[in-house]
Structures are given as C-alpha cells and as structure tokens.
Design a binder for these strands. Sequence first.
DNA 1: TCTGAAATTTTGTTGTC
DNA 2: GACAACAAAATTTCAGA
Lengths: 170, 170
Amino acid sequence: MDAIDRHILSILQEDASLSIADIAAQVGLSQTPCWKRIQRLEASGVLQGRVALLSPEKLGLGLSVYVSIVAGEHSDAWLDRFTRSVAAMPEVVEFYRMAGDVDYMLRVVVSDMIAFDEFYKRLIAVAPLRNVVSRFAMERIKATTALPLETAPPIAFPRARRVAEEAVAG
Amino acid sequence: MDAIDRHILSILQEDASLSIADIAAQVGLSQTPCWKRIQRLEASGVLQGRVALLSPEKLGLGLSVYVSIVAGEHSDAWLDRFTRSVAAMPEVVEFYRMAGDVDYMLRVVVSDMIAFDEFYKRLIAVAPLRNVVSRFAMERIKATTALPLETAPPIAFPRARRVAEEAVAG
DNA sequence: TCTGAAATTTTGTTGTC
DNA sequence: GACAACAAAATTTCAGA
C-alpha cells in the first residue's frame, strides 16, 4: 500500500468508470502493473466493490431524515430484534450504534414527510424505544462516498499484513 | 422509467462491476436494449456515476462522528464562509442544512479521537458557532449507498420529462 | 419505435522479458 | 514494471417485429 496504491484508490473512489489505461496513465504506470495493483487491492478487501450512484432528487427520494434513538431496553433479545428489523428497512441507509446520550443514529431516505411518517410508525412498532428524535434535512450541501485518504494513517498495508498473518499462522 | 429501468438501477446500485450481458440476462433483455437503457439513464442524470467503495477499517478510517451545529450568525457572509470551508474539508463526508433545533448536521470520518479533536479545532476556527455537539459511532450496523427504489414514487420519467421540456421550449 | 443478432472497436487479462 | 499477444467486453450497425 504505497503512494501509487493510494493514488489509484483516490481515482477509483471518485470515478470507477475509468479504463485501466486511463488510470495507469494518471499514476504513471503501464496497464499491467496498474491492473495487478487493482487486483491486489480487491483481494485484500481495501477495494470493496463498485456501485452506481443514483440521483435521490430525480427518483423522488429527496428527503433525508436523521433519527436519533434511545433504546427502550438493553436485553439481548431487544437488541437482536431491533438491530435486525431496522437494518432490514430499505429506507434506512445508515445505522450506527453510538456512544453517549443517544444509542442509535439513523439516516433515512424517503420521498416526503408523509412517507417519513409512515416509516416512523413502522419504526416505533419494531421494539419499545425510550426516545426518538427526527431531524429533517432541508438542503444537501455535500454527500460523498469518498473517504479522506489524505488523512489516513500510514498503516493498513495489505501485503505486509499478509506476511504478518502468515508468520503467526506458520 | 418503467419497471425494467428500475430493475436495472437496483442491480447497478448494488454492483456496478457486472457486465451488460449479466444485467441484460437478469432483467430479461438482450444486450443492446439493455445497454441503450443504461445510456438513457446516464444521460437523464438518474444514474450519476460509478464509484469504488473502500473499506474505512482497512484504511484506518474507522471512526465516524455525527456533528450537529447551531449557527453563530445568519448573515450571507457567515453562511458562505461556513458552507465553503466545511464542504472543502475531506473528513466531512456528509453535510446537510437542517430544519429545527440544529442548523447543520455533519458526518465526519477520521482515524481516531486524536484525529477528530484535531478536526474539531479546525472546524470551530472556521466561523463563529453557537453550539456544536459531537456524537461518536461505536459500531456500523448498516451503511449503504443504495436508495430504496421500492419506495420511490412513480414520478421521474426521464423520457416523459424531455418530451415536456421540448413542448415548453417549442 | 423498440428489439435482437452479428460485426466492430475498445478494454481487460495473460504470458514473456 | 513494460511490451505484446490474447480474450472478453462494450459499442455500433443493421435486420426484423
């Protein structure tokens, strides 16, 4: 995972429709070594896959709502039920367990307030909740899938890691 | 934008590395009409692009922090300065203007608490803020780029829209 | 006007140095 | 890591419903 690998990743996380020839030219390599690096990044799991990004507005799904939840219980049964049910809802595009004053944070994508209210009723029916706060987004100023590679620490070397793992296994 | 277009979009937003032959087979079309539909969806802007998804954990960027902000002022100058500066920070992967008790919501991706604190200092130096609350994610339960197409309203027909626009223009 | 089969061109992949 | 041969895929063309 050297600077060239990072350069390749930064290009691909912005535009994965580029040809290997294009990417190779940008990073100053010929096609084969560039292709081999991409294969290695995929095999190591750093490159998880390629997806198409759709326009929420053009699909009539322009309303994002942040929902913070305080759990109703902390039993294993409650947790399992809540986690599975909420993760299975397609409107939930982000779902994190939090530290601090709220237990869970969601981002929910819906078409409008009516649709959100319909979602909300299904959400509170899933399992008992102590508190739910919904905050509505008025304007999307920035939303990217690109991670800040320039701020990533100099760890995570797929090759070095594999060597280390083999040393442990052997 | 019929059911087949939606089917194509739902496949591509899960995996954009599939060949047109694969997609065509899944939606029950031959390559050419499937390819033409994808071209049309790209031209209409519903399909915005293809990106590679990277592993935050493997890159040492496993900490997500939700930051809610109450603005310090509401002047045009403040707003412009704040919006531009925050959007330009690579750690900020989501940035929405909100309705209600908070003015802005961010999701920030960093390597650890130290890195977040460093980011936080830069953030509060950008422009005067009345209140900032940071909530730390402990566990990512779900995070997808796939929009809930099954819940999208039956609007947004790129072709029909073009016809309507031409009718207005003519 | 939309579909599908085949030809063409571009791109991805493998082998050799 | 580069270059050349090979394989596969995307794109265009064209015939038919």
